[in-house]
Design a protein around this nucleic acid. Structure first.
Lengths: 343, 343
DNA sequence: TTGTATGCGTTATCAC
DNA sequence: GTGATAACGCATACAA
């Protein structure tokens, strides 16, 4: 690893001059010198030591991308194509903008805070954070931060969030189901915070607007991570008798259940209709093809990076909510049913 | 951000003493001083500046994880659960060992080299590298490096690779097909280098051992990334008439083709049997459940990190090949056929 | 038990 | 045009 100092000595120049050439401040340097230095740089493959540079300018070009998930959910989390795609685009966009990505996947918010401050990250992208988590991070980390897919109340914490039209997406899906004659709809989720909660609100709004009596509405709660377990699936089979459709908050869950039901001899959508949320490969891979609410994950990552870079350049935190649009994708997992009440 | 110097001044101590406390060298410091310093550390949430530390000790705790993929394949690459799971476990294991992961996904090997050297990474994990790529990296980067899933000839480049029993896996799968009466088997791949090539070799070995005439053996080449395109799939439909089974080198491709075939009215495994390679969620999600060769991605990442850490501690590059075992998973995508020659 | 001095590689401020 | 020199925060060899 050749350094500026080494090169300066070899050419009998000062480090300042060499540094100037490296930074293209060539108007203050003679052409001959520039050439000499440039030659050496190429010859020895000079590459700056970022640690030294960061120390000198008190910045890193590091953006921390912190994904919070409980320890038990760990493996599930990262195998989900949503995260793969998100991480991929964020890394890509970040580098295009001249930054580097440091990835933290951890169940401990304390750990995340510690790491980001040691590395003196120029900015943060937070995924999967609750309001509490966000507040804790903000207490200790003051530089630009953007959150992805969180719902945080405006009063408590000013923040910039990049998310989805979750409420609207669920509303549209419910509306679609109702128009297809469904009234007894089971809304399945493993938590009631953040995005799932807002999707539930959208679902409720549609149910109300179309005047479906509240007692026909079923909220089905699943223990987090248990949707892959046999007994939970069996339980869902039971519930399937009481409703004509299930709405899931992720394609992965929806697809898993479709397969389970069919393996058990239940017809989808013949006996029960099923919908998802995400629009990823799992929904395309399962048969019947999943009717779902599509989001553009790439766009999500891109928007987050764009906002973050803007903040870093302006040296200040911005506030607001960016809600990316969603779109219904009609597959084959929903059947038209006769509404008994209508006839 | 409070620094060691700040704390030393506040307590009227030297930076050395403070530094010693931080590093737990308390036997050389009086109990009272330790307490004082510790109190301040907690109070101000002192956290070391890693840039400064790295500069001082000439090391970073950074491991570069470089994934090479052509620009066009970019999105495909990272949405594959294989990469998601691999990145996840590597990050996890790395942190457990006290390192940080810097992720580089790039089609340019030059770029990868430049980034890893600016950051002065302590070690490298390389994924998706050809022999040429590896040699180029090694010319410029001398610190510990481990490769995942590459095939590099021993003579040209000494290296440590963590891979799979690719040849054996394909052998077993072919053997299984043959025992189920298949003789006309189409081996489908979009490249003939690295892992796919060795899988092909295993396939050939089985065909030879079971004395299937060479003319019954079909190597079907697909343009890279084209297996999702309509015309390539249609072409494959044509080929399906000439064979009784297709072997694919990935579950994702196999599942995609199963769906396409069935959507077109071709029965799987009724009209044609299909096998995959990987053992991931796609294979479990498609119906019929895919018969495939399973690998343990988590174990792969774990092994890579373990080896790398060992090298970093011993300060030297090691050589060798670690081939993780594979296992046949029998799904429902292969049918027993009557071997016409046997009757 | 504690302190002093120096170096890590880079950038930036001034002076020549 | 070019060059000293200090500063960034930390670790460490060596003194005291």
């Amino acid at each position: 690893m050749i350094t500026i100092k080494d090169m300066a000595e070899m050419l009998e120049l000062s480090t300042t001059t060499v540094s100037n050439v490296i930074h293209g401040k060539t108007k203050e340097v003679s052409g001959a010198t520039v050439a000499k230095v440039q030659k050496l740089i190429d010859e020895y493959n000079y590459v700056p030591n970022i640690n030294a540079r960061n120390l000198a300018v008190n910045s890193s070009k590091i953006i921390g991308m912190a994904i919070k998930g409980s320890e038990e959910k760990y493996v599930n989390l990262i195998a989900d194509p949503f995260y793969g795609e998100l991480i991929g685009t964020v890394e890509h966009e970040l580098r295009k903008a001249g930054f580097f990505m440091m990835l933290y996947i951890s169940g401990s918010i304390e750990e995340i805070i510690r790491y980001t401050s040691t590395w003196n990250a120029d900015g943060l992208i937070l995924v999967g954070m609750s309001q509490d988590d966000y507040v804790k991070v903000r207490q200790r980390y003051k530089k630009p931060t953007v959150i992805i897919d969180s719902y945080i109340s405006e009063e408590i914490a000013r923040h910039l969030n990049v998310g989805l039209e979750d409420e609207e997406g669920a509303y549209q899906m419910t509306e679609y189901l109702i128009k297809y004659g469904h009234r007894k709809i089971g809304f399945v989720t493993d938590n009631m915070e953040g995005i799932d909660y807002y999707r539930y609100l959208g679902h409720k709004r549609a149910m109300k607007e179309y005047m479906v009596p509240a007692e026909e509405d079923q909220l089905i709660s699943i223990l987090p991570g248990h949707l892959e377990k046999e007994d939970t699936l069996a339980e869902l089979m039971q519930k399937a008798k009481e409703v004509t459709a299930f709405m899931f908050c992720s394609d992965y869950y929806a697809a898993t259940v479709i397969n389970y039901f069919q393996d058990q001899g239940l017809k989808v959508p013949g006996d029960i209709s099923i919908t998802g949320f995400d629009g990823n490969r799992y929904g395309k891979m399962v048969r019947p093809v999943l009717t779902t609410v599509c989001q553009d994950v790439t766009e999500k990552g891109r928007a987050a990076v764009k906002q973050l870079v803007k903040m870093i350049e302006n040296q200040k935190q911005e506030y607001g909510n960016i809600r990316l649009p969603v779109e219904l994708f009609i597959g084959d997992s929903v059947k038209k049913v006769k509404d008994p009440a209508a006839s």
